[in-house]
Design a binder for these strands. Structure first.
Lengths: 145, 145
DNA sequence: TTCACTGCAAATAGTTTGCACATAG
DNA sequence: CTATGTGCAAACTATTTGCAGTGAA
């Protein structure tokens, strides 16, 4: 996908613009996150993909790189149900709901939380970071079980 | 507190009513959860309190007991920010917001999510389990930092 | 008396860290 | 050249499990 290559190039440009170094690890990790798209990959899953592309990149480097990219504001992590956190580009703005029984994840429009975010800000002086946690509950199929 | 003793007695009665055994571990774990009230104790924190009251109760038993009590419907766990899950009585119905910077937890009324829960059920066939995750964001003091 | 519950030790999953070496700029 | 990033091994935190023995009903 040319689209993905362009996206990667843009992200690397952001790093360069901030005066950060571009290393093999950062390039490959970012690339895998771009390629993963709407998949929700955990750190271990990303590490595995990264490692299969470049076996010299150590798992601990992937952990450090993800921290770094998040600090730089390029990516975010999100908690889906009871598995380790997953990572995605920060500009992917949508919400998630996970069925606590079948573990199926569904994507939801980000504006569902707009009103609640407003209420929290107005009445409780709390600025919500939308989307950091998934909603937990039951999908239709699992409701009666 | 007589109130807390009564609450404990009621919970034990529920177990007995279901035909479950009442053991020392179950008694002490439930008692500590009742006494903890609005504190949000992790499994390890509970295990420590339980152990200091009865050193013969092993940490792994506390894990198993918490699972058991949740399966029975007496307690729930909730994810507050980036620490291990915390436990509370199921009939404690309120929401939480955690500041991602100072880690302070604030309690919020449960009805804040009523409308969203309705929308999810109506438009997305998803029945939300309210309160399983805390909101993440920034409290007023940390907003500008 | 019987079977569910528990203690213990060991295994597992996920993540972090110290340090010496490698490398981007 | 030099500070920053990385590999590696080891530590650490949270949790689970197999098994043999204990105790609630």
């Amino acid at each position: 996908m040319d689209d993905e290559n362009a996206r990667l190039a843009g992200l690397l440009a952001q790093l360069r613009g901030r005066g950060e170094r571009i290393t093999a690890a950062r390039r490959v990790v970012l690339d895998e996150i771009v390629r993963a798209g709407e998949l929700h990959l955990t750190t271990e899953e990303l590490a595995e993909r990264v490692h299969s592309r470049d076996p010299s990149i150590h798992r601990s480097t992937v952990y450090r790189t993800l921290d770094f990219l998040e600090t730089c504001g390029l990516i975010d992590h999100i908690h889906l149900a009871h598995r380790p956190p997953t990572h995605h580009l920060r500009d992917d703005r949508h919400l998630h709901a996970v069925c606590e029984r079948c573990e199926r994840t569904m994507d939801l429009p980000a504006d569902l939380l707009d009103e609640l975010a407003g209420t929290l800000a107005r009445d409780h002086a709390f600025t919500m970071r939308v989307g950091h946690f998934a909603f937990s509950g039951r999908c239709q199929d699992c409701l009666s079980v």
